[in-house]
Simulated assay, not measured.
Amino acid sequence: MKVIKEKHSLLMRWTHWVNFPLLAIMIWSGMLIYWASDTYSITLFGHTYYKFFPQGFYDALNIPRRLAEGMAFHFLFMWLFALNGIIYVLYTIISGSWRELVPQRRSFKEAWLVLLHDLHIRKMAPTQNKYNAAQRIAYTAVIVMGFGSLITGLAIYKPVQFNTLTWLCGGYHAARIEHFVLTIGYVLFFVIHVVQVILAGWNNFRSVVSGFEIVNKQPEPVVKPEEDGK
């Protein structure tokens, strides 16, 4: 028997979907800023193996020579990105939803079992509640990354006014590298997240849109009264 079960609250869904365009704009505008000084590359013993990013990448996305535009968008939407994240974190704390989200002691071991199941190496997936162990680790890591982006971003934006944050990040140049690495992390998370959503199926995606999912519930067995004399 199929029943409708509530899974995600309205505020959780709202912050989830609002975060997607905000993060997309932040990454896009950040690339406009990065182009002005695209110095990062993978270099060993004087030989550059990879440069972030090839010229064709900039040309395809029409990124070059838009520094002022990138800074305007980045410094505006960073406040919306931060506000959306703060609302979500406060909600999880006040509502108690953090108990379903924060990794547990056995989560790292179970996350490996989840990976083996997703790769079709292991038949049985570990038991889970709202989120499995891998999701707990990934979603908590993204929240930590969000705070990291905010701190390193402020250190880059106002290194003198926020000199303490800049010092905690290891200096201006270290904060810029950390900010860049976190951005790469967002992109990787997004790709993996989309793949996982596709593998999970329509029912899981629908629950993030409507807040409800359809689950199969076993009917309770009917107990017949014993006949007299038996």
Rank of each mutant, 00 (worst) to 15 (best):
M1I: 09
V3H: 05
K5Q: 12
E6D: 11
E6R: 15
L10E: 07
L11W: 14
L11E: 09
M12K: 07
M12A: 14
R13H: 09
R13Q: 04
R13K: 11
W14Q: 03
H16V: 02
W17Y: 07
V18Q: 06
V18I: 11
F20V: 15
L23Y: 00
W28F: 15
W28L: 13
S29R: 03
L32P: 08
W35A: 00
A36R: 11
S37R: 04
D38P: 12
Y40A: 07
S41R: 14
S41C: 11
G46L: 03
G46N: 02
H47R: 14
Y50C: 14
K51Q: 10
F57Y: 14
D59M: 07
D59G: 05
L61V: 03
P64W: 02
P64M: 00
R65I: 00
R66F: 01
L67M: 12
A68P: 05
A68V: 15
E69L: 13
G70I: 02
G70E: 05
A72P: 01
F73W: 13
F75Q: 13
L76W: 12
W79T: 02
F81R: 04
L90A: 11
T92R: 00
I93P: 08
I94E: 10
S95H: 06
S95I: 08
S95D: 12
G96K: 02
G96I: 10
S97E: 14
R99E: 03
E100C: 01
L101Q: 08
V102R: 10
P103W: 02
Q104P: 07
S107I: 06
K109L: 15
W112T: 12
L113Y: 03
D118I: 13
L119K: 00
H120M: 12
H120V: 15
K123W: 10
K123L: 15
M124C: 13
M124K: 14
A125M: 04
T127L: 10
A133W: 00
A134T: 05
A134Q: 02
R136H: 12
I137T: 02
I137V: 04
Y139F: 10
T140P: 08
V144S: 11
V144R: 12
M145H: 04
F147N: 05
G148N: 10
G148D: 07
G148W: 03
I151K: 07
Y157K: 02
Y157C: 03
P159G: 06
P159L: 04
V160I: 15
V160H: 13
V160K: 11
N163Q: 11
L165S: 04
T166W: 01
L168D: 01
G170N: 07
G170P: 06
G170K: 08
G171T: 09
Y172G: 00
A175T: 07
I177C: 02
E178T: 04
F180W: 01
F180Y: 03
V181H: 06
T183G: 09
T183D: 14
G185V: 04
Y186Q: 12
Y186V: 15
V187K: 01
F190N: 03
F190I: 08
V197R: 09
V197F: 11
I198L: 14
N204P: 08
F205L: 15
F205W: 13
R206L: 13
V208D: 01
G211H: 06
G211W: 01
F212G: 01
E213M: 09
E213A: 05
V215M: 05
P221T: 06
E226F: 13
E227F: 11
G229C: 12
G229Q: 09
G229K: 09
